[in-house]
Design a protein around this nucleic acid. Structure first.
Length: 296
DNA sequence: GGCCAGGACTCAA
DNA sequence: TTGAGTCATGGC
């Protein structure tokens, strides 16, 4: 195994600690491991699997990469991955200025200062995660995701710990329905995961092409797949396509956060949600993310 | 035991 | 276009 170390300067309004705290917020996560001051995960580069470990000091993030062979293009991919995952290349100062204009939200800019909208770089993973999480509690959702990842995901052992990648669509497509049922996936979820896997396998959908479309076209392409509804489309648009204007309409967590901070009805209608979000134009995704963060 | 979970679909009216 | 019914099971 070869090893390389990459340095990424920390921008303004960035807190590695708060990002790590978010990653380690209490759900048992099978796709990365957070220790006191570092996070480790297995990622898929175009030339194969690589184990990355990220730490930071006050000025830089340090990404160490372990892989069979490492070349220059691997390092570039690792850097792009980390920048995307932590949303590093975004100036979020304007968002904090908006938060500070309202008494209900000014606390967020202090409490979560430097927290970035942590992404899901892999679009396929992001979509499957949405389907898994639909209408079940998050603890259980993590449980069945872990079963799926352990059975179908590629892995790499490092010391005592084995790290996993989310399964590839072509692998999931070959999965037996009864195996997924035994992991406690509902028939509906299984159908949706097969639909999404198929869409990726026949290249009806891929991240690169979606990124070349405008938001309306992206939503249309996503909603065309059975199992992807408005909530999922907004979620992946926010977490994977990095559109900054997403609102997770219909989300129970968003509803309760708005209820907590704005004294709305327990389940505010879209009009009420739009009114509140209208103060955060072009930062809707961040505002939504911070509202979610306020729940845990 | 009952209600709710980071929804989405079908089908009827 | 809207609303009720269905899925399906763990957590509290």
């Amino acid at each position: 195994m070869k090893n390389s170390i990459l340095t990424i300067p920390i921008p303004k309004n960035f807190s590695f600690t708060k990002c790590l705290k978010f990653l380690n917020r209490g759900y048992s996560e099978c796709l990365y491991k957070v220790d006191d001051s570092q996070v480790t995960r297995l990622i898929r580069l175009s030339s194969g699997l690589a184990l990355i470990q990220i730490t930071a000091d006050s000025k830089n993030m340090f990404v160490s990469t372990k892989k069979e062979q490492i070349n220059e293009s691997d390092e570039k991919e690792v850097e792009a991955y980390v920048i995307d995952w932590f949303d590093i290349n975004r100036d979020i100062q304007p968002f904090y200025q908006l938060l500070d204009t309202q008494k209900q939200t000014t606390k967020f800019s202090k409490k979560y200062h430097g927290l970035r909208l942590m992404g899901i770089v892999d679009l396929f993973e992001s979509l499957c995660w949405c389907v898994i999480g639909q209408q079940i509690n998050l603890t259980f959702a993590h449980k069945i995701k872990t079963r799926l990842v352990y059975k179908y995901g590629e892995c790499m052992k490092d010391g005592e710990h084995t790290y996993y990648c989310f399964p590839l669509p072509e692998i999931l497509l070959k999965a037996q329905r009864e195996d997924l049922v035994s992991m406690q996936f509902s028939k509906q979820k299984i159908n949706y995961i097969f639909n999404i896997s198929t869409a990726f396998c026949i290249n009806v959908i891929n991240k690169k092409d979606l990124l070349g479309l405008n938001k309306e076209q992206q939503m249309e392409a996503l909603l065309a797949i059975k199992g992807i509804g408005p909530w999922t489309a907004n979620y992946v648009s926010m977490k994977s396509l990095r559109d900054m204007t997403c609102i997770a309409y219909g989300d129970t967590g968003l509803s309760s956060a708005l209820h907590n901070h704005f004294a709305t009805e327990k389940k505010p209608d879209n009009q009420t949600i739009n009114e509140i979000f209208s103060s955060f134009k072009d930062w809707e995704s961040y505002f939504n993310f911070y509202l979610w963060r306020s729940l845990s």
